[in-house]
């Protein structure tokens, strides 16, 4: 299928395809944002109270981690464009590391909540107001889905790192890395929305 090769090199096409995919990802979260808005309008005070129980400091810390990782991602791409492969792989590794750090933080945050009996269907939560139950239901659904995206992103970037090291991604042919970067920025942007909705609503 050598003749198809010329189409694989269509940078513009690859980027259009990626953007379309990102649209559909945004709308996937859009469904959850609709549910969140509907219930927040119905239970404003209970959302406010429940939000106070989340660890805002940890949320902000994780935001800093993700924002930094977006920066290193961008630096990695621009380093590669300037043919500085070692810098590019270093920045990419840093991005992967920060993504992993985010997940570790998330793990401790969830564990603490579950340890306190705050998880969907728990006896402790069922004693609370309906709005608080829904807040935590949405909290786990939305940060969980976002967490899955971080896992997917870290996996994707690790593959890119391997390709970069093996010279399958080069300064002349780096659309894969660029698209992976776009995906990573999307993961970051979604978190920027999640932070105020859950941690800063109190």
């Amino acid at each position: 299928m050598t003749s198809h090769a010329e189409y694989h090199k269509d940078y513009q096409g690859a980027k259009i395809g990626m953007w379309l995919f990102l649209f559909s990802e945004l709308i996937l979260f859009g469904g959850l944002f609709i549910a969140y808005s509907a219930f927040r309008l119905r239970y404003p005070h209970e959302f406010h109270e429940a939000s106070g129980e989340l660890n805002a400091a940890l949320g902000v810390a994780n935001t800093v981690v993700l924002l930094t990782s977006s920066l290193t991602m961008a630096l990695s791409i621009s380093a590669l464009q300037q043919a500085r492969k070692r810098h590019a792989s270093a920045f990419l590794s840093a991005t992967i590391g920060l993504g992993a750090l985010f997940l570790v933080n998330k793990f401790f945050e969830w564990s603490a909540k579950i340890h306190h009996g705050l998880y969907p269907g728990s006896a402790h939560l069922m004693e609370r107001e309906p709005g608080q139950r829904l807040f935590f239901g949405l909290y786990y659904s939305m940060t969980g889905l976002h967490g899955l995206h971080v896992v997917a992103g870290v996996t994707l970037l690790s593959i890119m790192l391997v390709l970069l090291v093996r010279d399958r991604i080069t300064p002349d042919d780096f659309v894969k890395l660029e698209n992976s970067g776009l995906y990573w920025h999307l993961v970051d942007v979604i978190w920027i929305f999640l932070l105020p909705l859950f941690y800063l609503a109190a």
Partner: peptide, 19 residues
């Protein structure tokens, strides 16, 4: 994607009673 997330929520509802 909207039906995607709706079906995911339905699964979460069945498995974890998210509510």
């Amino acid at each position: 994607p909207i039906v995607g997330i709706t079906l995911v929520l339905l699964i979460l509802e069945r498995l974890f009673h998210v509510g």
